[in-house]
Design a protein around this nucleic acid. Structure first.
Length: 267
DNA sequence: ATGGTGGACCCTCCA
C-alpha cells in the first residue's frame, strides 16, 4: 500500500501538480493539508477522474482544510473531538480495510503558531500548544493500534530536522515547548517512520520557505511533515521518500510530498 | 536587524 502526505497549499490552484504526482507515483491513498477549499467547492469530480472515488474531506473558506483521497473504500472515523472547540478543519481520520485487518489513518494539520514563541503574548502559539495537548490526551485515552498519523505537524523536532539547530532554537517550529509536546504525543504509541529510513544525523527537510530566492542553494529547510506508525505497524514499513524535486515544479507548494510504502494490501 | 514570497480574499489575514 502506497501513501502520500502533502501540504498542497491550495488544492484548487495545484490540481495540475497533484495530477502529475499521481501519474508519477501511483499512490493508493493521498492525505492533503491546507486544501483551502470549503466543502461545497471541493473538486470531487476532478479527483474521481484522477482515480480516487473515495474521499473524505473537511475544509473552510480561505484557511486550513484536510482531505484523504483513496482508490479503495475508506470509512470515516466517528465521534472525533472538535479540537480546541474551533471547528477549523485540521483533522481527518478514516479506517482502511486490508487483508490483515483494519488500519486507522489520521491526517493532521497542526496550527503553525505565529511568530512569537510565547503563549502569554501570542494566542496562535498558545493554540498550537493546546491543540497538541488535547490530541495527546485523546490518544492517551484511546491507545492507538494499527494506526498511522501523517500530516503537517508544523514542528521539526530533531537537531537535523532544521538547517541550523542553534539559529532556530527560538524560532516557532523548533522551540523546546513545542518539541516536548510533540514528543509526548508521539509517545502515546508511535514511532517516527521517516527517521527509521533516514536516521540522524542526516539532514531531512520537507519544507523550504517561499521567502528565499534560491531555496535549493541556500537549503534552509525544515522537516515539518511527518509519518508516524504505531509499533505494531512499524515492521510493515518498506520505503519512504521525500519528493524534493516537486519543490521545483511550476508554481510549487512550499512543502513537498512524502511517499511511503507499507507491506499491507488494501481491500 | 530586517525583510524577504505566496495564497486567499474584501484589503488584510495567514503561512
Amino acid at each position: 500500500m502506497r501513501l502520500i502526505t502533502w501540504n498542497i497549499n491550495s488544492l484548487r490552484l495545484r490540481l495540475p501538480l497533484l495530477q502529475r504526482l499521481v501519474s508519477e507515483q501511483s499512490p493508493d491513498i493521498i492525505c492533503l493539508q491546507e486544501t483551502k477549499v470549503p466543502d461545497p467547492l471541493f473538486p470531487a469530480e476532478a479527483l474521481r477522474d484522477l482515480g480516487f472515488p473515495h474521499m473524505f474531506f473537511c475544509g473552510m473558506k480561505g484557511y486550513n482544510g484536510v482531505a484523504i483521497l483513496s482508490r479503495h473504500t475508506v470509512t470515516p472515523l466517528e465521534a472525533m473531538p472538535d479540537w480546541c472547540g474551533k471547528s477549523d478543519t485540521r483533522h481527518a481520520g478514516v479506517t482502511i480495510n486490508t487483508t490483515t485487518g483494519p488500519v486507522i489513518l489520521h491526517d493532521f494539520y497542526v496550527p503553525a503558531g505565529g511568530d512569537i514563541a510565547d503563549p502569554a503574548v501570542n494566542e496562535k502559539f498558545a493554540h498550537k500548544l493546546e491543540f497538541i495537548e488535547e490530541v495527546t490526551s485523546w490518544f492517551r485515552a484511546n491507545p492507538p493500534q494499527r494506526s498511522i498519523i501523517v500530516g503537517d505537524l508544523n514542528i521539526a523536532p530533531l537537531e537535523h530536522d532544521v538547517w541550523s539547530h542553534k539559529q532556530l532554537a527560538t524560532v516557532v517550529s523548533h522551540t523546546s515547548p513545542e518539541i516536548e509536546r510533540l514528543r509526548a504525543w508521539q509517545d502515546t504509541g508511535f514511532v517516527d517512520a521517516m527517521r527509521l529510513i533516514v536516521p540522524e544525523p542526516e539532514k531531512l527537510y520537507t519544507w523550504w520557505s517561499y521567502r528565499n530566492r534560491d531555496w535549493k542553494r541556500s537549503n534552509r529547510g525544515r522537516r515539518l511533515d511527518h509519518i508516524w506508525l504505531t509499533h505494531d505497524l512499524a515492521p510493515t514499513l518498506r520505503t519512504m521518500s521525500v519528493l524534493r524535486d516537486v519543490r521545483d515544479w511550476e508554481s510549487p507548494s512550499d512543502h513537498v510530498p512524502v511517499v511511503f510504502d507499507l507491506d499491507l494490501d488494501p481491500t
